[in-house]
Simulated scan of single mutants.
Amino acid sequence: MFEAQASAKFCSYQCSARSKAARKTECTCEECGSTFLPAYGDKRRNFCSEFCAKRHFKRVTKGVVRARSYGAEAEPINPIAVMDRDGWTCHICGEEAPRELRGTMRWNAPELDHIIPLSAGGSHTYDNVACAHRSCNLEKGDALPPGWADPQRLWVHRGSGGIA
């Protein structure tokens, strides 16, 4: 029979461990999407491994370093979150940008595009970035969106010298 002090919640260490194991919930890795059980005492873990954590933070902070080199306002941006927000659709041509091509060199691979380019004074914030195809982003170059001050500079490819 179990007789415990008033502050005791479990009869033994084994009962305590079973209770903790039952309360553990699976988490989803923010980088690779796999499910995992966090280690003991690590309830707020967002990544399944150190590799995924380093890969995520490298990808998220790369744009901040580049934006600061231009002297622009910058915040850490998760490109995958932007692609999800935009429905994996190119904001320039309106066609689908296949998720499985992310990170490849294919012409229709989705990329992060600065709507107002960093070189034109744009910021590296969620309000100024959108999903674009690699080819559309290259074609746009450092041009400003339609309706901005200099109409000769709108959507001009760097090498062509004319309106695209």
Rank of each mutant, 00 (worst) to 15 (best):
K58V: 10
R158G: 11
I116F: 11
N108I: 07
L154F: 13
A143D: 06
A74R: 05
F51R: 07
E75P: 03
D142Y: 06
H56N: 07
E50F: 03
G122Y: 01
P79N: 09
E139C: 14
E96N: 09
N137A: 02
P145C: 06
M83H: 12
G141P: 00
S69V: 02
A74W: 05
N128I: 02
L112F: 06
V60C: 02
D142P: 02
H114M: 06
E73G: 03
P145V: 03
A130T: 10
E139P: 00
A130F: 02
I115R: 03
L154Y: 09
A109H: 14
A72N: 11
E96D: 14
H133F: 10
E75M: 10
M105T: 12
E139V: 14
A97D: 01
W107M: 14
V129K: 00
G121R: 12
T89G: 01
I115S: 00
N128A: 06
I80Q: 01
A130Y: 01
T104R: 06
R106C: 13
E75C: 06
N137T: 05
R66T: 12
M105Q: 13
D142H: 10
E75A: 11
A109F: 15
E50G: 11
V65G: 02
P151I: 10
H114N: 07
L144T: 04
F51A: 03
